[in-house]
Write a protein that binds this DNA or RNA. Structure first.
Lengths: 241, 241
DNA sequence: GAGTGGTCTAGACCACGCA
DNA sequence: GCGTGGTCTAGACCACTCT
């Protein structure tokens, strides 16, 4: 069963969970592909089908897998739509979801700053890729973003312009990085002259400020993103459950 | 098995799920109490223990139940701490959670307004209870709230002052209403003179505006809450998963 | 030791997708 | 018709709590 020892005793299903997550994160199974069937996995790992099922169900709940009855179990793909739906929370008041477009972007590779190293757990000499961009909604520039990515995680990202609308699908397809969670902090702020020059807002008007750190399946901090959003007819929607 | 028919065919575990949710929402089992054991429930409902387990695990994931190995399965209580942790997302930048206190409050019973009827699915003649209050953090008034509750759901609420810090524990303990989810929309706004008079902010400073509708286990809209939060050193924290 | 939930197994049958 | 995941069952043993 591929080096599953018993360090102080972990339940079997947790050991199976770790094996499967490791295989996915090491690229043994790739996004969009199907896993072996439950019975094949159970035989391979020398556990019962029920134990495999418990793990696959858990990973499905975490949105890392997708199960299709009659077909198989697949590695979830961070498609554009899916990533937008999952990690982009802006909508019209009342609920209608909004889809942002790129207005413009500037990408460069540069040394990291102290705050960036703190946010992303980087070392003193690590470089970062800085993405500055403005996003538009229905043709109207509404969001200014500064995105910081450790250069070591995404080599060559700075020369891939134009970047796709959702970076997370790029991280997954090109760099094998699965973004599984993000931590956000929201504040209110005031638009300054730079904001007014780039997005559809006047100086002194209120902006919604979003500070996000995105984390990968392997628990690495992959991206620090600061967004400044026009807040006149756009809201940030959350469901607390 | 208590009137479980097969309307077009629902899986057994869904039928069991419905029965258990109904018993909880009808008060047959009350918060803090323990449910019968898995084996007793299985016998009672004429299903296998595994099917009962699947349902209890699901309800535990939804935070409606709590399971304690060796002791039993309990109806989750919306204690102050728990409700704050689950539904109050304001914290210091960086993550330290904040605990609000009541500064003052005014409660009254009055006819509903059109927007309130829309938000809470009320009829033309339904009355509401309006709670206006200011909450303080570390002694500093930071949040202005207006809370609207259908009078029919919480009779006598207007004469219960002073209200507890977390209304949700009161809804549960006094009215048998379990708040299981809430939908929030966040915007940025500017402080006006009324804000400046009541909370620690100057006119024209940015405020975080939160619009929340809380929903019960039975899918009734129980509360519409509008909050205006000082946003200088308070952030709204979200984990996207 | 008795009773509870937690883990694990083995096997049956159903529902779905596809060739 | 075959292979897949989805549901359901029955039973064994473990880990924890309380008396």
């Amino acid at each position: 069963m591929e080096s599953i020892e018993t360090p102080g005793y972990r339940p079997l299903y947790k050991q199976v969970y770790d094996v499967i997550v490791r295989r996915i994160s090491q690229g043994e199974w790739r996004p969009g592909q199907s896993l072996p069937s439950e019975t094949a996995l159970a035989r391979d790992l020398s556990v019962s089908q029920g134990t495999v099922r418990k793990v696959l169900d858990a990973l499905t709940a975490e949105k890392l897998l997708e199960r299709r009855q009659g077909k198989g179990t697949y590695i979830a793909e961070n498609t554009q739509e899916r990533a937008l739906f999952r990690f982009f929370r802006l909508s019209r008041p009342g609920g209608e979801r909004l889809i942002p477009d790129r207005a413009w972007e500037k990408v460069r590779l540069r040394p990291s700053r102290a705050l960036e190293r703190l946010k992303l757990d980087l070392g003193r000499t690590d470089k970062v890729i800085e993405i500055r961009r403005v996003r538009a909604i229905l043709g109207r520039p509404c969001i200014r973003e500064t995105i910081i990515v450790p250069a070591a995680l995404a080599p060559g990202l700075e020369s891939l312009a134009p970047l796709p609308n959702t970076l997370y699908s790029l991280y997954q397809s090109r760099y094998g990085i699965n973004i599984t969670q993000a931590h956000e902090e929201l504040r209110a702020g005031l638009a300054d002259d730079d904001d007014a020059a780039e997005i559809d807002v006047l100086p002194g008007q209120p902006l919604l400020l979003i500070d996000r750190v995105a984390v990968s399946l392997e628990d690495r901090k992959v991206e620090w993103r600061q967004s400044r959003c026009q807040s006149a007819d756009i809201v940030y929607a959350v469901n607390l459950t």
